[in-house]
Design a protein around this nucleic acid. Structure first.
Length: 176
DNA sequence: GAATAGATCCGC
DNA sequence: CGGATCTATTCA
């Protein structure tokens, strides 16, 4: 079943965990989500919204269940799922899928041909969506670590807001 | 207008 | 560890 709006209208840390084991679907491709990271609000210095509302990040200030896709380092795109209430800028970064060449946020968007053209899409009524295929992931199979690539964010870099499926060979990093 | 930095990835 | 590559954002 396609995840409904309500799935995304939960606390961001819960959504980040519950997205593990779900399937990202776009056009004729689909793959299981195995690595996510939470970015939570204006105070989180690792979150783009910590600098306020801008043209780039404004979708994060909107309704949950939409995509937030941006270009990074001039050559990659990162896919995020907006969570939280309106005017509470929160999102979950999809970092890896159980799929060849999808072990990293920049690599999975390249494999799935996702660009800023798909920014701001409603995941409840688009050809891009997330599906529950009845493969539950238990808490015992989830590992929580620090987020990757945000060392500049001070104490926020230390928050354990990255979630991975234990022992998966498709993670963006093999070790914690 | 110019400068800068960035939620990455690859190759040396 | 440096380079690729480019845009949004910041600074003057």
């Amino acid at each position: 079943m396609i995840l409904p709006r309500k799935f995304y209208q939960k606390p961001t840390l819960k959504v980040a965990q519950r997205l593990l084991g779900k399937y990202l679907v776009f056009k004729n491709m689909s793959a299981k989500i195995i690595e996510t990271e939470a970015y939570i609000g204006r105070n989180d210095l690792a979150c783009h919204a910590s600098k306020g509302r801008t043209k780039r990040n404004e979708v994060m200030f909107g309704k949950a269940g939409y995509t937030y896709i941006y270009m990074i380092y001039g050559m990659y795109f990162c896919l995020n799922i907006v969570t939280g209430k309106i005017d509470c800028p929160e999102a979950v970064l999809i970092r890896a899928l159980e799929c060849a060449g999808c072990n990293g946020p920049g690599k999975l968007t390249r494999t799935f041909s996702l660009t800023t053209k798909q920014n701001g899409l409603d995941l409840t009524r688009s050809e891009l969506y997330i599906e529950d295929r009845g493969e539950p992931v238990t808490r015992a199979n989830i590992v929580q670590t620090r987020r990757i690539g945000v060392d500049y964010a001070g104490i926020w870099a230390k928050k354990p807001w990255r979630f991975i499926i234990k022992n998966s060979p498709h993670l963006s990093r093999k070790f914690i």
